[in-house]
């Protein structure tokens, strides 16, 4: 068998079930049903400039960016501690960090409701302590919490795997040359770990910006995100043209985002090389 023959199933499958469907989405995005058949139209994109939809788009970005930043800030110390630890419990802790991902993600998110709702665990504790109840759910903060909760392990793992490769003699050398630990961290460890941070950002940002489940459960429908709008167009309103237009926008955003992440990755690998030299 020639080696290209091995690729035929992939080619066929990708053409029929990946590229062709995306072409259909693009087709619907740029057309409208007219008087005599379907006509080329930019109407769906024009509708997107409605302040309501722009607001939803901006909010999706805001929620995703904040959630990604929190994941970096909370996840980095975990990855750093684990990468430098020689404890015999290290493996168990890594398993424990990955394990929640095997529990159904809807269920994990839903479970937060029993902790945070008005009659939930946290409020019961607050009341017992004589404090007033707090409305935790159905706001932006709750959606961000749900997002961070679901994607935090995706940030910790790539940073951890990158930091494992850091040669500790580099840090010793930095110390020998007079750098204090903070300076050594900022000049050696942090630049070295940037590729890990970037893959983490790619793994957290894309699902966060397009989620519709977390916003429905934790936001109770009060914090609609761009994913909710797409879901509505296809499942409720049945406006495939408008739904496709939003999907095209999301696709372009993801592609541009991935392009910059990859470029940053390449540039920083060069940088890492410079440190080693």
């Amino acid at each position: 068998m020639k080696k290209t023959a091995f690729l035929i199933p992939l080619y066929v499958w990708t053409a029929v079930f990946v590229l062709f469907p995306l072409a259909i989405v693009v087709y619907y995005a740029f057309t409208r049903p007219g008087a005599d058949g379907v006509v080329l139209s930019f109407e769906s994109f024009a509708r997107l400039s409605d302040p309501m939809y722009l607001g939803v788009l901006l909010k999706s970005f805001k929620v995703a960016i904040i959630a990604t930043l929190i994941c970096i800030l909370c996840g980095y110390p975990v990855a750093y501690t684990l990468a430098r630890s020689r404890s015999k419990y290290k493996l168990i802790i890594i398993i424990l960090i990955l394990l929640p991902m095997w529990m159904n993600f809807l269920l994990r998110t839903y479970s937060w409701l029993s902790i945070l709702e008005n009659t939930g665990l946290l409020n019961t504790i607050l009341v017992k302590m004589g404090l007033p109840k707090v409305r935790f759910l159905y706001n932006e903060g709750a959606v961000i919490l749900g997002t961070v909760y679901n994607y935090l392990p995706f940030m910790i793992m790539p940073i951890y795997l990158t930091l494992l490769k850091l040669d500790e003699s580099l840090l010793e050398a930095a110390a020998d040359l007079g750098a204090n630990p903070v300076r050594a961290f900022l000049r050696v460890t942090l630049p070295f770990s940037i590729p890990g941070i970037l893959s983490g950002v790619a793994m957290v940002f894309v699902p966060s910006v397009t989620t519709f489940v977390i916003s429905q459960l934790m936001g109770g429908g009060k914090v609609p995100l761009i994913g909710d709008v797409i879901e509505q167009q296809f499942r409720v309103v049945n406006d495939w043209h408008f739904g496709s237009a939003i999907s095209v926008i999301v696709m372009v955003i993801v592609l541009v985002f991935m392009y910059f992440i990859n470029r940053g990755d390449v540039e920083n690998n060069g940088n890492g090389g410079r440190i080693l030299r």
Binding site: V18, V206, G227
Partner: peptide, 23 residues
């Protein structure tokens, strides 16, 4: 070939879902 093959993994899940539903 690889970048095209990785599309379903990198693209937003909702777009993959919607495009297949249309197909």
């Amino acid at each position: 070939v690889l970048s095209i093959a990785y599309i379903p993994m990198l693209n937003a899940e909702i777009v993959t879902g919607v495009s297949l539903m249309l197909l």
